[in-house]
Simulated assay, not measured.
Amino acid sequence: MHKPLITIGIPFFNCEKSLLDTIRSIFAQTYSNWELVLVDDGSTDRSIDIVRSIDDPRIRLLPPDGKNLKLAARLNQITQESRGDYIARMDADDLSHPERIEKQLSFLQTHKEVDVVGTNMYILNEQTWPVKKLVVPQDHDSIIKNKFRGIKLIHASVMARIEWFRQFRYDEKTIRCEDFELWIRSAPRSVFANIPEYLYLCNEFQVFTLSKIAKSKQSAIKVVMKYGPEEIGILRSVCWAVIRYLQIAAYAVLTMLGLPSLLVRNRYQALTQQESAQAKQALEIIKKTQVPLKI
Rank of each mutant, 00 (worst) to 15 (best):
I23Y: 02
V37D: 08
D179C: 03
V39T: 15
L257R: 15
F12Q: 13
F168M: 09
S106F: 03
A270H: 07
P260W: 02
D40A: 12
F27K: 10
I144Q: 02
F148Q: 06
E275V: 02
K147M: 15
L69I: 11
D171L: 01
A88E: 04
R83I: 01
M90G: 12
N266G: 15
K226Q: 03
P188D: 09
E102H: 07
T174E: 11
I184P: 04
A72P: 12
K287W: 07
G118H: 04
D85Q: 08
R189N: 15
K103Q: 15
F148A: 06
L36G: 12
S190F: 01
P130N: 09
V191N: 04
Q273E: 14
E204F: 08
G118P: 13
P4M: 08
Y31Q: 12
P63H: 10
V136F: 12
P292A: 06
A279P: 06
A92F: 02
A249H: 08
P196M: 09
N194D: 12
T174H: 01
G233R: 07
Y251N: 07
L38K: 08
M159Q: 04
C15K: 15
T7V: 04
V207R: 15
M90H: 06
K288P: 04
V253R: 12
L210R: 12
I26R: 09
R236W: 06
F180P: 05
L283G: 05
E172T: 10
S25M: 11
A28Q: 08
P137I: 08
L61V: 10
L124S: 06
V238R: 14
N14R: 11
L134M: 14
K70N: 13
I154K: 02
P4H: 02
L71C: 12
N68A: 11
V131R: 01
A88M: 14
D21C: 06
S47P: 10
V264P: 00
A193V: 01
Q281W: 03
V191W: 00
Y227R: 03
G42I: 12
I78E: 09
A160P: 03
P137W: 10
S96I: 04
A279C: 06
A28G: 06
A282F: 04
P260K: 03
